[in-house]
Design a protein around this nucleic acid. Sequence first.
DNA 1: CATCAGGGCCCTG
DNA 2: CAGGGCCCTGAT
Length: 327
Amino acid sequence: MKTPVELGFKFERTIKPTAPFNFDATFYKPGHFPSGDNDWSPGVRWQTTLWKGVPLGLVFENHGSIASPLIQISIFADRDLENSFMESILEELKYRYNLQMDLSEFNSKFQDDPQLGSIIQKWLGMRPMNYGSLYEYLMIAIVLQNATVRRSVNMLQALFENYGSLLAFDDKVLYCCWQPQSIHNTPEQDLRNLKVGYRAKSLKRVSEAFVSKEIDEFVLREKNPEDQRTELLRLYGVGPASVGYILFDVFHQMDYLAYISPWEQKIYSKLFLETEIDSPFSTDYLIKYFTERFCGYRMLAVNYFWEDLFWKRKQGQVDWLEKLIRL
DNA sequence: CATCAGGGCCCTG
DNA sequence: CAGGGCCCTGAT
């Protein structure tokens, strides 16, 4: 275990998200696997991030309500931070966590949907979020591929331990992501020794794309979904499944739904069409079905069901789902 | 013990 | 455009 870096400088700010805003359903996703760079308890999320090369510890605290939201953000660093830096990270966090999102059209459009209506009520103000950068998301997307949950967790942990840094702030010790440069400079065999398997090549090639500025998250944000898709698919090791997650979570494309993986197919069929999990509808059919029912917000609508399902699972209420989740 | 598929993707034919 | 191969692991 590395010696943690003490983040001795603390800065406090507040952000007012658009209402309605559900703090916990936005800042914690029970369907995500645990990762060493964050922690959560009701009303508080801890998160590390690397911003402009500076490792930061972030603490988000719920100081408001759904109708009148307020978040207190504490930013911990190992140095004094200039005002312009602070402003830039705050703007970035608003983007990443979708804090200015306008959900009113979605909420009113589907309030009378026989299933979605009550889910919206239950999770009013929940937003999809990307808790880190596009680069960090890609690293996770790669370790997710063709692996069980436990193995993905182990791969990410090994990467943190070997290339990340350990940060101590607010009585937490969490890993912070590495610079793309460090993986770019690493021999493929060193990565393979961490048991990431053939993904070593993808991790290296994607890191290289960031080092060479072949890909730029901020440029991509301004493009339309089709161009974003095309550019992401050019990255070695990034295919349709990863692109789907990234367009939604990272680039906030609420209607992009072009690919459904086998396990999602089973879950969706059961959830929306009440099939047995062993005999799901085809993915083509499901996509057509979503297009008719949730047009304009296909992915967001499906995501509301998804999050609701995994919150229920967290409370031990969904037996059939356990068979589909391989630990 | 051996076999196999897993929260994909690349490459080949 | 379908299908084999890829690293490693735990389930069977």
